[in-house]
Write a protein that binds this DNA or RNA. Structure first.
Length: 169
DNA sequence: CCCTGATTCGC
DNA sequence: GCGAATCAGG
């Protein structure tokens, strides 16, 4: 079924979104079935890095060794990252992309480069198609989507797992 | 505490 | 080559 490999098409999306200025987590969410780590890893492997902004890149990297990493790795719970989120995207984006037309005025639609932190990044349609556009609504604080799409994205929301969950340090 | 990207390393 | 775990900065 789902090919767990970076197809050319997938990579193309990755490059476009990354160069577009979207965050790795956002790209991961948009692509679906991938975590932000996967996205970052691929980005580095591709040679892309820093594109325009390198906030943390300005910091020195004194090659930190990791002797404390070989700790016992208990059976890791599968389904990390935003599995539920990816699912939602899959269902929402496949049937009829233009179905969201009724909730997204033409005057509000934004292209990739028109997106801001304050604009809704909800993708509508396939990025490869000319009809593709982003919602462009007013994004909520700390969220990539407007109130409407945030509700859709996080519907199953009871407690979605964060990658940053640190058990012990 | 939230987020971000960067890096290392097991697979 | 891939990505989880981890690190480090904002």
């Amino acid at each position: 079924m789902t090919v767990l490999t970076w197809t050319d098409d997938r990579v193309e999306q990755l490059k476009k979104l990354w160069e577009g200025g979207l965050s790795a987590s956002q790209i991961a969410a948009e692509l679906g079935n991938v975590t932000r780590n996967a996205v970052i890893g691929k980005v580095h492997r591709l040679g892309l890095s820093g594109r325009a902004k390198s906030p943390t890149s300005a910091a020195p990297r004194p090659r930190k060794a990791r002797p404390a990493q070989h700790m016992m790795r208990v059976t890791r719970p599968v389904a990390r990252g935003n599995t539920a989120l990816a699912h939602v995207f899959e269902v929402e984006a496949e049937p009829d992309p233009v179905a969201h037309d009724n909730v997204v005025p033409m005057s509000q639609r934004l292209s990739l480069l028109e997106l801001n932190e304050a604009t809704c990044h909800w993708p509508i349609g396939d990025p490869s198609n000319p009809e593709f556009f982003f919602c462009g609504g007013k994004a909520l604080q700390s969220l990539p989507y407007c109130a409407h799409h945030s509700r859709i994205a996080y519907q199953p929301a009871g407690d979605r797992r964060r990658q940053q969950a640190k058990p012990t340090r």
